[in-house]
Design a protein around this nucleic acid. Sequence first.
DNA 1: ATGTTTCCAGACAGAATGTTCATTATGTGT
DNA 2: ACACATAATGAACATTCTGTCTGGAAACAT
Lengths: 198, 198
Amino acid sequence: MAEDRRTRRTRRALRDALVELVLERGFAAITVEDITERADVARATFYSHCRDKEDLFAAVTAELLAELDDRLRPLVAEDAVGFTGKPVLELFRHAQERRDLYRIVLRGEGDGRPLRLFVQRTVETVAEVFRERAELNGVRPRLTPDLLARAWVGEQTAVLQWWVEHDTPPMPVEEVARMLFDLAMHGRYWASGFDVPE
Amino acid sequence: MAEDRRTRRTRRALRDALVELVLERGFAAITVEDITERADVARATFYSHCRDKEDLFAAVTAELLAELDDRLRPLVAEDAVGFTGKPVLELFRHAQERRDLYRIVLRGEGDGRPLRLFVQRTVETVAEVFRERAELNGVRPRLTPDLLARAWVGEQTAVLQWWVEHDTPPMPVEEVARMLFDLAMHGRYWASGFDVPE
DNA sequence: ATGTTTCCAGACAGAATGTTCATTATGTGT
DNA sequence: ACACATAATGAACATTCTGTCTGGAAACAT
């Protein structure tokens, strides 16, 4: 007893409509009727699927995060050992494919709730990687780990946002990932062009 | 003919009420009536001051940014030369004083609009500093300057958000500022506890 | 083919919005 | 202290959006 084809159809339609409309007008400016009209679905049907538009947005976001998690999980474990930067690359690939949704989430639509969830999840896995990495390599962080995790995720997220907001990508995924890697290795002082002392 | 005392009074009341309420319930969940009730002002009066609640939030944000700008401007010029980290310190001081407002802005309330404005402004001045610094010191950035600016602001903003969301501050301003400085100088690899090669 | 589930169209009360207006209260400049 | 100007008030208003609930039609799984 897989899911009814009708429910799949309307769910898809509603979600796609939401993303389109938020991208066009912003979350606050759209109504439930706007969504159902675009999705070509009766308004009553909307309410048999979700409580309100926030709820729908939350569902869309959850789906996205699950998708991302599936892609990242294998790479993350590997990265804790090797410091490869592969998870970052995969994140940017994912964002490239689902660009519209990434845009609205990263813009903070929905009063920043979906974005906060995204950041929170990322911080958790990053913190986890930091811990494992420290243990595996027998090193001890020189800065407060929480701060470090937040800083790293903040940097990554900001660059991701900057990158997806360009109509024509400013650079290929491989290059962004490489720059973030270099930045992590050498720091902003070096990246600005200075030679690092000692 | 300075501004009428009455308008000053009600503006203050409305702004304070907005910040309080958004902090308590979130921007989407509050109504104009909630605001006027809390501010002890007639609802009609609200509309003679702003179009809607977004407008009020925008005004509050603009005020905050102007305030911040006044504090930062003198330090920014100086920092382009000396790389002191003083602007960061001052930013955190400001956030400490106006904590509630910083919280709601950094959370992305108002569909992220105020936050985007904050980030955008910061990116602009940071980019400016980078340019001047490069020229003054005769260095050339090793990474795309736009990316560099976004990364730096993203890192800073994320840490700021993390910091203001703690009920009891995790560390004094001086210490956060110092950590961000160290992070900029040596990079995340070093901060994680590794020794930087070569 | 049949019984089940979902979708639909329409109606409904309640809440919030944004505007108007006559009246009262409060400031400002002299 | 006064007169004038301007802001705040409370109430009413049409409009829009919300969230819920029908009975009946349509699509589904088996």
